[in-house]
Simulated scan of single mutants.
Amino acid sequence: MANVEKVSVSMTPQHAELLRDAVQSGAYASGSEVVREAMRDWSAKWMQKREEIAKLRAMWAEGKASGPATDADFDAVLDEAREELAAATTDAR
């Protein structure tokens, strides 16, 4: 590992025990290996979360740009959605 940076991390005694147990069991060669795997998992989740947040912001902006809010009959909207779903299900067969 030519390009690494050492960082100090504080954790609960329970997490430290889990980390030590993972190394002592032979599943990992070192505590650093455990932390690197945890960081890879977290990094993937974080990137997905950032993408989802960006999509929500874009949808919010699109909604705001679409004009003022209008009243809607919720039951009518549900009925229309059910009809579209039924039609799509029928078409798929």
Rank of each mutant, 00 (worst) to 15 (best):
A2H: 13
A2N: 07
V4M: 12
E5M: 13
E5F: 12
K6V: 09
V7L: 08
V7Y: 12
V7A: 02
V7F: 09
V7E: 10
S8P: 04
V9W: 02
V9G: 01
S10D: 02
S10C: 10
M11K: 02
T12V: 08
P13M: 00
P13S: 00
H15D: 04
H15M: 12
E17R: 14
L18E: 11
L19E: 00
L19S: 01
L19D: 01
D21L: 14
V23D: 01
V23A: 00
V23W: 06
S25E: 08
S25V: 08
G26F: 02
G26K: 05
G26R: 05
Y28F: 04
Y28A: 01
A29R: 14
A29H: 13
S30K: 00
S32T: 07
S32Q: 08
E33I: 03
E33R: 04
E33L: 06
V34M: 04
V34D: 05
V35F: 01
V35S: 00
V35M: 02
R36D: 03
R36F: 05
R36P: 01
E37G: 01
E37Y: 03
A38D: 08
M39W: 13
R40P: 04
D41L: 12
D41Y: 11
D41G: 09
D41I: 13
A44S: 04
W46Y: 13
M47P: 11
M47A: 14
Q48E: 10
Q48N: 10
K49H: 12
R50Q: 12
R50E: 10
E51N: 09
E51H: 07
E52M: 09
E52F: 07
A54V: 01
K55R: 11
K55M: 11
L56N: 00
L56M: 03
R57N: 03
R57E: 00
R57L: 05
R57F: 08
M59D: 10
M59Y: 03
W60A: 13
E62Q: 12
G63E: 03
K64A: 07
A65K: 03
A65G: 04
S66K: 04
S66E: 07
G67T: 02
P68T: 15
P68G: 11
A69F: 12
T70V: 13
T70D: 02
D71N: 15
D71S: 15
D71M: 14
D71V: 15
A72L: 14
A72E: 07
A72N: 03
F74Q: 12
D75G: 08
D75V: 09
D75R: 10
A76H: 07
A76L: 02
A76T: 05
L78T: 01
L78S: 01
D79R: 14
D79A: 11
D79M: 09
R82K: 14
E83N: 12
E84P: 06
E84Q: 10
L85T: 09
L85D: 08
L85Q: 13
A86G: 10
A86N: 09
A88T: 00
T89L: 14
T90A: 15
T90K: 15
D91S: 13
D91W: 14
D91I: 15
A92H: 08
A92K: 09
R93L: 09
